[in-house]
């Protein structure tokens, strides 16, 4: 009997870990890019009844390839229902009927606030980013938010340059004070591990490391004094089926 060494990239570990965070039967408002790949992976594996919702107005979409944009034709063709953009935000997102908002960003801070607007000053930015899109209201109104993004020192900052989407504001109680009805970010899944808000402080702390990653590595890519959970877990490595499915997913026109 021979054993084959399974190898994977940090990005693949991140997508697999993110897919595992979604449960079967949930409804999920999906951002494009990393969240979209992970959500589609989940639907192909352990969550076949995951309801995928994209801001282009597709409800219950089941694309057999990954869309490049949030409005690719494959999303409409495979959807249970297609509604207008005002309807998707007003009737479906705003009342709080969607379980999970699945987001990414350019910067995130220790309270889970997300920046996708500018790096630097708003009026004369160092880098102009795409902007809000649907993210501010996804972050406000979904029952909970899961963030997927690569952990880099320039991205995991003590305080974001611009609050595009509110996480936990400046600490506990801020969401309620701001009238935000969803729970906000409950988990940030990176290519190094998993961060979750401390219930007492709302600050993101390290609760899991992916297999083979050290606390020092995670700390080196975090722009605040990263607290380590006393119950630090290790993420199970990607299974052969997870990797095979992930690698088999093609982007439309790719």
């Amino acid at each position: 009997m021979t054993t084959t060494e399974i190898t994977w990239t940090a990005d693949e570990m991140m997508s697999v870990a993110a897919s595992r965070a979604l449960r079967d039967g949930q409804s999920c408002f999906v951002g494009i890019g990393l969240p979209s790949a992970a959500a589609n992976l989940a639907r192909r594996l352990h969550a076949p009844d995951l309801v995928l919702i994209y801001e282009s107005g597709t409800i219950g979409t089941e694309p057999d390839e990954l869309p490049l944009s949030i409005g690719d034709g494959i999303l409409a063709e495979s959807a249970l229902s297609v509604v207008s953009v005002p309807e998707i935000f007003n009737y479906w997102l705003q009342p709080g009927r969607i379980d999970v908002g699945f987001l990414s960003g350019a910067q995130i801070d220790r309270f889970g606030n997300i920046n996708t607007t500018v790096i630097g000053e708003y009026d004369e930015p160092d880098v102009r980013l795409p902007g809000s899109g649907g993210a501010p209201e996804i972050a406000a109104s979904c029952r909970e938010v899961i963030v997927v993004m690569r952990q880099r020192l320039r991205a995991f900052v003590a305080s974001v340059d611009f609050v595009t989407s509110v996480g936990h504001g400046s600490g506990p109680g801020d969401r309620r004070r701001l009238g935000l009805r969803g729970a906000g970010p409950v988990r940030v899944i990176t290519d190094l591990g998993v961060l979750e808000p401390d219930p007492a402080t709302a600050e993101l702390v390290l609760t899991a490391l992916h297999t083979g990653i050290t606390v020092e590595q995670a700390r080196a890519e975090t722009g605040w004094e990263l607290e380590i959970s006393p119950d630090l877990m290790t993420t199970a490595p990607p299974g052969a089926d997870e990797l095979e499915t992930l690698r088999g997913m093609r982007t439309v026109g790719g």
């Binding site: 935000f89 007003n90 501010p136 209201e137 406000a140 609050v163 989407s165 801020d174 701001l178 935000l180």
Partner: peptide, 9 residues
């Protein structure tokens, strides 16, 4: 709408 609360926009 329910929106923008707490953001910098």
């Amino acid at each position: 709408l329910r929106g923008y609360s707490g953001t910098d926009l």
